[in-house]
């Protein structure tokens, strides 16, 4: 096992110890003018895309009264909180407080946006200053994401394979080979982005999606949490 893989498994660092870029969602699942929740280890995010297509990852907490910004709405190039309509720009700065329409919001009010980029159809977020780019899943394209209520160890046991230092798990079931890019969620939960070879047919992609569901069921049946329940 290489050092990056070891760090990832022991420290929960995704996907590598140096830059900690986390694959939080597929690009297609955050369409223009929408917001949805996302997760970094220990931190909730509001992932949103402006009307013009600009992607952003804010802390999922409005600095005003603590409301989850993922319940908010996107208008134009800004994300607004559903509670009082406070609006934040792509850099996180507060641009509007509707209760005081004539006031310019102080520069200190900020939605704490994180470093975010899109590569290979995946939205990557980093909580610190990224020192290197996210891993390159060359030749693979995303199919879908799914949540797995199991630990990484349980999924690896189900897949009879181990994740590499990029956080990528390759596995085969009933002759269908898939890759899963993994990210941690709260508790013993994983977010898995299913990837297939770029030249896969529509049927291949459907089969990959079903294979991922099979691994999910096996991992969840193996997890001590589901055994207890």
């Amino acid at each position: 096992m290489d050092l990056a893989t070891l760090a990832w498994k022991i420290e929960g660092m995704f996907p590598n110890a140096l830059c900690q870029w986390v694959p939080v969602a597929l690009s297609v699942d955050v369409p223009a003018a929408t917001v949805s929740p996302g997760w970094l280890p220990g931190l909730e995010l509001a992932l949103w895309r402006s009307a013009a297509g600009h992607i952003a990852a804010s802390s999922n907490r409005c600095p005003h009264r603590g409301m989850r910004l993922s319940h908010g709405f996107v208008r134009g190039e800004n994300l607004s909180c559903i509670y009082h309509g406070w609006s934040f720009g792509p850099d996180g700065g507060c641009v509007r407080i509707p209760a005081h329409p004539d006031m310019t919001p102080p520069a200190t009010i900020n939605s704490q946006n994180k470093a975010v980029l899109e590569a290979g159809g995946i939205v990557w977020v980093c909580d610190s200053n990224p020192k290197s780019p996210p891993p390159d899943f060359h030749g693979l394209v995303p199919v879908r994401s799914l949540t797995i209520e199991a630990s990484l160890a349980a999924l690896e046991a189900a897949a009879r394979a181990v994740a590499d230092g990029k956080g990528l798990l390759a596995a085969t079931i009933d002759g269908v080979r898939i890759h899963m890019a993994l990210a941690p969620l709260a508790g013993p939960q994983l977010l898995a982005h299913v990837l297939v070879a770029a030249d896969s047919t529509c049927e291949d992609r459907i089969a990959a999606s079903r294979a991922a569901e099979a691994f999910r069921r096996m991992a969840e049946a193996m997890s001590p949490e589901s055994a207890a329940a």
């Binding site: 600095p63 005003h64 009264r65 603590g66 407080i97 209760a99 005081h100 006031m103 009010i109």
Partner: peptide, 8 residues
Amino acid sequence: AMEIPTRA
């Protein structure tokens, strides 16, 4: 320090 109020 936890939340930011305004005049409203």
